[in-house]
Amino acid sequence: MSTLEACAALPAGRAHGKTAGGAHAQVRRLKGALLKGVVYLAAALTCALLVGLIGYIFLKGLPGITWELLSTAPSALKGTIGILPNLLNTLYIVGFALLAALPLGVGAAVYLTEYAASRRLIAVVEFATEALAGIPSILYGLVGMLFFCQMLQLKTSLLAGGCTLVIMILPTIIRTTQESLKTVPGSYREGALGLGATRWYMIRTIVLPSSLEGIVTGCILAVGRIVGESAALLFTAGVGTVVAQNVFAAFGRSGGTLSVALYMYVSERGEFEVGYAIAAILMLLVLGLNAATRLVRRTMKSKEGAK
């Protein structure tokens, strides 16, 4: 090919390259739009499923919620159906489990992330927590019944059920807190230590406030599991429906939570209207606890920002 022929063919080659590049760009844009549409569709389906589930429960359950249901205890002699003992037992056991599990879980996560030097130890503990998180709740109930109720002689009581739930939610709190601590930039730690702060002061004032989102997420997941748990509590806490005189008396006797009451009313008595009402109360309780947890998080963050 002569020089003139090569120069004549050059613009044609460039034009062909531009055409091919434009086609590839168009294909990439189509793929991107398709994937974006799939993501939006998945998000819409998830939101629709959530709204549909909550809406169905509220539609079926809210009409059955009455003051008599909330303020009385069940009585075969009086012919009344009430969930006041179950509601109180649920609040008691949620408070006890969080008060016991949060310090243990956050402390374990802080040690694994900030203090532990042995990678083998960290790997073993992480494997153990992941394995515990995957164990079915019925097995926790059996172990809790054998250990807390029989070996420690706590009998069937709220205290035995609360201790069992503490073991159940510890892996969730540890893992979420640990992953949140890992997201804190290392420059924060280096800057604090470089200014002369002690390791604990650095953790308390910089690392933990920066990882508050993960800790709150762990609390929300733990509360959801506590409120919705029934299998483990059937073996450990029992199904008692007597209103105790005080909190300490309640932990010393058998007591069924709302989820246990839901199971008993639906499966044993076939009273689906009461079951839907309890389900709606459980949903409202979970939403309220989540909102309260988020409010506490915002308050703590605003105080840290003011400082």
Rank of each mutant, 00 (worst) to 15 (best):
R120E: 05
V110K: 07
Y115G: 11
R120G: 07
L104R: 08
L112E: 01
A109Y: 04
P103E: 02
P103W: 00
L112Y: 05
L104T: 09
E114G: 04
R119A: 12
P103T: 05
E126F: 11
A108Y: 10
A108C: 15
L121H: 10
Y111L: 15
Y115C: 10
V110T: 10
Y115W: 11
E126D: 14
L98A: 07
L99Y: 07
G105I: 04
E126H: 14
A108I: 15
P103F: 00
A116T: 05
L98N: 02
S118Y: 06
V106N: 06
E114H: 01
V125F: 09
L102I: 06
V125L: 14
G105E: 04
E114Y: 06
P103Y: 02
R120V: 10
A123K: 08
V106E: 00
A116V: 10
T113F: 11
Y111T: 15
S118I: 03
L121E: 09
G107H: 09
I122A: 13
Y111A: 15
E126L: 13
L121G: 09
A117P: 10
A100N: 05
Y115K: 12
A123F: 06
L98I: 09
R120H: 07
V124K: 12
L98E: 06
G107F: 11
L99A: 12
A101M: 01
A123M: 04
L112P: 01
E114F: 04
S118K: 05
A116W: 03
V110G: 08
S118G: 05
V106T: 12
T113L: 11
A108K: 08
G105Y: 00
R120L: 11
V110I: 13
A117D: 13
E126C: 12
A101S: 09
A100C: 12
R119W: 07
L112T: 04
L121P: 05
R120A: 12
L112N: 03
S118C: 08
P103Q: 02
L99N: 04
G107Q: 11
P103S: 07
A116L: 09
A123V: 03
R119H: 11
G107E: 08
T113N: 15
G107R: 10
L102W: 00
A116G: 04
P103H: 01
A108L: 14
A116Y: 04
S118A: 09
A109Q: 03
L121N: 05
V124Y: 12
G105M: 02
L102E: 01
A123L: 09
